[in-house]
Write a protein that binds this DNA or RNA. Structure first.
Length: 935
RNA sequence: GGGCGUUUAGCUCAGUUGGUAGAGCGCCAGCCUUACAAGCUGGAUGUCAGAGGUUCAAGUCCUCUAACGCCCACCA
């Protein structure tokens, strides 16, 4: 398929991404650029996207994460791989259910009254309508996913995969059901795994209440301390440390639980810390995980005193029933005080667990849950990791991951919600027999009234754990599974290494005997410019679409107003000061470049609108303008056979090869910011500042053959550079590629690269190879030219003589080879520096401004304009610096240990340096002498 | 309590196997030089957090210390 439409006119002075990006992406889709070919002869390369929540909106973390994947995919595609990047979304159980619940609330409908079936139906409708939003947003980034293979964790195939694994686990006793104390979110009314609970460092302000519990025989009291008085109704023992001499006599006696009247024993257990509180602990097995374990050891009663919503249940005395846990807490304290059983209240920070989702303080609750036995699975994962089968980039995450695997605990996988994969277990209503199967068992279908299916659904991460192969068709043995599993690399964030990465490795090994990926690239966390993580509640998030498309001031203020942070007014003021007229969009290319160049190995990276504006935007604009110039030069070339390459041509092509090498190396080792950095400097410093400047001069005065030579070089440089840059900036490079390619074809400027085929760049242009031209030519020769140019510019600036005044230059070098080299650049020097003369001399001429370069002394007739005193000071300064260097070098070379200990090459290099420094010193002394003689 | 990260120019950060420090922004000076003023040219700027060690040689490797940040664990 061929397309020849360009989207931005060459007369445009500035690059306008909005006129290009959308159109280019549509072109890619029409040309079917991103669809993998399972029957291809090319080697496969595959990545599965970390599936965003269906409820999600694109944020900066996604932008970085997906840009990295896109860079790798585009790079590999250009390198000749059959690339499959699987996109998709996660059903995100609790999140999605609560989004839809909110909609229902708004309609005044209680979701419970609708019932399970209807709620699920509503959620599916919502999903069909809004669930693709985030995938559409990914296209704006340029993501080259294979959209024909978009998956959703609750698709039929993926759901079947989930049930299949559940059954396998169950049959092999890796899944079990048990009464257990779990983290319970009273808002979402569901169990949470340990990983879903977050605890603030240092705890939160609370109290430690000291109570007296009277001995049953009326002989006195035991004093206990608790942070949670409302749980005392569930106390079934008092525990002391067996070694604690104070209390040894108490063990075996009993106390009467106040307010309740139950008699409970005093027992001894090592768990109790004699130093803390009073040394006596009330034990509440149904409401504390430690107490639960202790209760099992001592066969204690488990008394649950709360309902699902953390109100007090009927186990408690009547006056407390139905009260919220915090109301109950106050009443309990008051009641204890009234009975004279309250001793004191200590203020103290206490650890408080909160749901990572609802932020509600979690409750510990005793209930029937399903668990995965993690140890055997983790052991295999750990072995694979230690054998180097899974390695992280940066590698520090290896040990982080391994240490977690080492201390893993069983995983509670049941969730008491409706949206998700329903647990494929059926219970017989009379016998309690349990059937687990992939599809509804026949015995259940035969006697439906005798069986009930488990009401719970699986933790969302259970289905995510299968993602790298369920998306490829597992448990069916599809061609895709065979070809693309294991995937090539996983790109994700460090905060889901446990939730997701580890579990994928475990189930992958279990189901397919092979890790799902050998490499895991952990990308940095994006923060705002103050280093704060971006979040809705802080209102400091930057919407990637605002960066791409631009935003009005109101758009920018929106998230802040919504979050209502305490310093809202300050932030709003800052917004209106910085962006009185809003933010003008920089396009996806500029955003991608900014993110990639910022995202180094550091754990976090700060971004801001300003940064996108200052880092990415200028580069796209410069690329646009340089391309315009280059294209006009290609147009100018007139079919004559080109002149032989001169120094500047050989130099820029050598630099292109060096850049190619660096970029390939960076992509291959996931050091993508190095690639971004190298591409920036090659383009700006080498192409724009030197080659194009030279080409402009040559165009003015050069012959037709010389112009043709420049066009040829430019054609190669740009057609190479655009390909190198494409993985990072796909849109603008695609747009320009078409223009350069067409132009080069017309002008027959392809002698260097027969392999270039056509548009679109993203699938038809191979990634450049390093042709090692840097090994064939001496880069130093051109650097000498650059040094001379800079030195003259510098002298001009010092003398405050404008470019318009022509200068006469005299050069002194004792080296005939150097003189020859400079002669060949002479006319270029004259043009570039506006010289009326450029001659060689045999001895230093008096009365000139001078710059001492290592290979040559440059004299310019600027003496009359020079501030002699300032020049003298400057020369003295450099001389001093040089003296210091010489002293250092001499000392080093006098050191016998250095001369014999260091490699010869290093010693020789130091000798050469010293030699050069000594020569330069002489020249500087001469120059200084002349300056001084004037005073 | 355990683990990890960071500390380099005014700011944000590079610095790839040890060989005397770099970029962008900002700042100062001069330029509308026919691709780009969203630009060009030139300039100033550092006890590489501190202390010790290994080495001929340390921003880089080792030990300790400090400040900041993150993660895990939790004594009721």
């Amino acid at each position: 398929m061929k397309e020849r439409s360009f989207h931005l006119e060459l007369s445009e002075k500035h690059y306008s991404p909005e006129k290009v990006e959308q159109a280019v992406y549509d072109m890619w889709l029409r040309a079917d650029c991103f669809t993998a070919d399972v029957s291809s002869q090319k080697p496969p390369y595959s990545i599965v996207i970390p599936p965003p929540n269906v409820t999600g909106r694109l944020h900066m973390g996604h932008a970085l994460n997906n840009t990295l994947q896109d860079v790798l995919c585009r790079y590999k595609r250009m390198c000749g791989f059959d690339v499959l990047w699987v996109p998709g979304t996660d059903h995100a159980g609790i999140s999605t259910q609560s989004v839809v619940k909110k909609h229902l609330d708004a309609e005044g409908i209680d979701y419970r009254s609708l019932g399970r079936e209807q709620v699920i139906e509503r959620i599916w409708k919502w999903k069909e309508k809004y669930g693709d939003q985030i995938l559409l947003q990914l296209r704006r980034l340029g993501a080259s996913c294979d959209w024909t293979r978009t998956r959703f964790t609750m698709d039929d195939g993926l759901s079947r995969a989930v049930r299949t694994l559940f059954k396998r686990f169950y049959d092999e006793d890796l899944i079990y059901r048990g009464k257990y104390i779990v983290n319970w979110c009273p808002v979402d009314r569901t169990a949470l795994s340990d990983d879903e609970v977050e605890t603030k460092d240092g705890g939160e302000p609370g109290h430690l209440w000291h109570f007296r519990y009277p001995f049953s025989d009326g002989s006195g009291y035991v004093e206990i301390a608790t942070t949670r008085p409302e749980t005392m109704f569930g106390d079934t023992a008092i525990a002391v440390n067996p070694k604690d001499e104070r209390f040894q006599a108490l063990v075996g006696r009993s106390v009467t639980l106040p307010l309740v009247g139950r008699e409970i024993p005093i027992i001894a257990d090592d768990y109790v810390d004699p130093e803390f509180g009073t040394g006596c602990v009330k034990i509440t097995p149904a409401h504390d995980p430690n107490d639960f374990q202790l209760g099992l050891r001592h066969n204690l009663l488990q008394v649950n005193v709360m309902n699902e919503d953390a109100t007090m249940n009927d186990e408690v005395p009547e006056e407390f029933r139905g009260l919220d846990r915090y109301v109950a807490r106050k009443r309990v304290v008051a009641a204890m005080e009234k009975q004279g059983l309250l001793v004191q209240i200590e203020d103290r920070n206490i650890p408080v667990g909160r749901s990572y989702r609802s932020k509600a303080v979690i409750e510990y609750r005793l209930s029937d849950q399903w668990f995965v036995r993690m140890r055997p699975l983790a052991e295999r994962a750990l072995e694979a990791s230690q054998a180097g089968k899974v390695t992280f980039y940066p590698e520090r995450w290896d040990s982080f991951y391994q240490s977690w695997l080492g201390k893993i605990r069983d995983w509670c996988i049941s969730r008491q919600i409706w949206w998700g994969h329903r647990i494929p277990a059926w219970y017989h209503v009379d016998t309690g027999e349990i059937l687990v199967d992939v599809e509804t068992p026949e015995r259940v279908s035969a006697e439906p009234e005798k069986w009930v299916q488990d009401e719970d659904v699986l933790d969302t991460w259970f289905s995510s754990a299968l993602w790298p192969y369920s998306t490829l068709g597992w448990p069916e043995e599809t061609p895709e599974l065979k070809r693309y599993y294991p995937t090539s690399v996983l790109v994700t964030a460090k905060d889901i290494i446990f939730f997701w990465v580890a579990r994928m490795v475990m189930t992958g090994l279990y189901n397919l005997n092979e890790v799902p990926f050998h490499k895991v690239l952990i990308n940095s966390i994006i923060t705002d410019e103050d280093g704060e993580t971006m979040s809705k509640s802080k209102g400091n998030g930057i919407d990637p679409l605002h960066v791409i498309d631009g935003a009005t001031r109101e758009d920018l203020e929106g998230p802040v107003r919504e979050a209502r942070p305490t310093n809202m007014e300050t932030i709003l003021k800052r917004v209106s000061e910085r962006f009185p007229d809003g933010f003008s969009g920089v396009g996806a290319d500029a955003m991608r470049y900014t993110l990639l160049t910022s995202a180094t190995d550091a754990q976090q990276v700060g971004v801001s609108f300003k940064r996108f504006d200052e880092v990415g935007r200028p580069l796209t604009n410069k690329l646009w303008n340089a391309s315009k110039l280059a294209l006009s030069m290609l147009e100018d070339s007139d079919g004559v056979s080109p002149a032989e390459p001169e120094l500047s041509d050989r130099w820029i092509l050598a630099r292109l090869d060096l850049c190619t090498r660096r970029v390939r190396d960076a992509f291959d080792t996931y050091g993508i910011h190095h690639a971004a950095d190298g591409l920036y400097h090659f383009f700006w410093d080498d192409i724009c500042d030197w080659y194009l400047e030279i080409a402009k001069l040559r165009r003015k005065t050069g012959t037709e053959a010389e112009k043709a030579r420049i066009a040829l070089t430019l054609s190669e440089v740009f057609l190479g550079y655009l390909r190198l840059l494409h993985p990072i900036m796909p849109f603008i490079t695609e747009e320009l590629w078409g223009r350069f390619f067409d132009c080069a074809s017309q002008k027959n400027l392809f002698s260097f690269a027969k392999e270039l085929k056509d548009h679109p760049l993203c699938i038809r242009a191979p990634f450049p190879e390093d042709q090692r031209r840097h090994e064939e030519i001496s880069l130093e020769e051109f650097e000498l030219f650059q040094d001379i140019v800079r030195s003259v510019r510098n002298m001009r600036a010092k003398a405050n003589v404008s470019f318009k005044t022509a200068l006469s230059l005299q050069l002194l070098t004792g080296n005939p080879e150097v003189e020859g080299q400079i002669r060949s650049m002479k006319d270029l020097l004259c043009q570039m520096l506006n010289l009326s003369a450029c001659d060689f001399v045999q001895s230093r001429p008096e009365g000139n401004a001078v710059t001492v370069l290592p290979k040559v002394e440059v004299f310019a007739n600027l003496f009359d304009f020079i501030d002699v005193e300032a020049e003298r000071k400057r020369t003295e300064g450099s001389l001093q610096k040089l003296e210091k260097q010489i002293a250092g070098l001499e000392q080093k070379l006098a050191n016998q240990q250095f001369v014999s200990g260091a490699p010869k090459s290093v010693v020789d290099a130091e000798r050469e340096k010293l030699q050069m420094a000594l020569e330069t010193r002489e020249k500087l002394r001469d120059a200084l002498g002349e300056l001084k003689s004037l005073n």
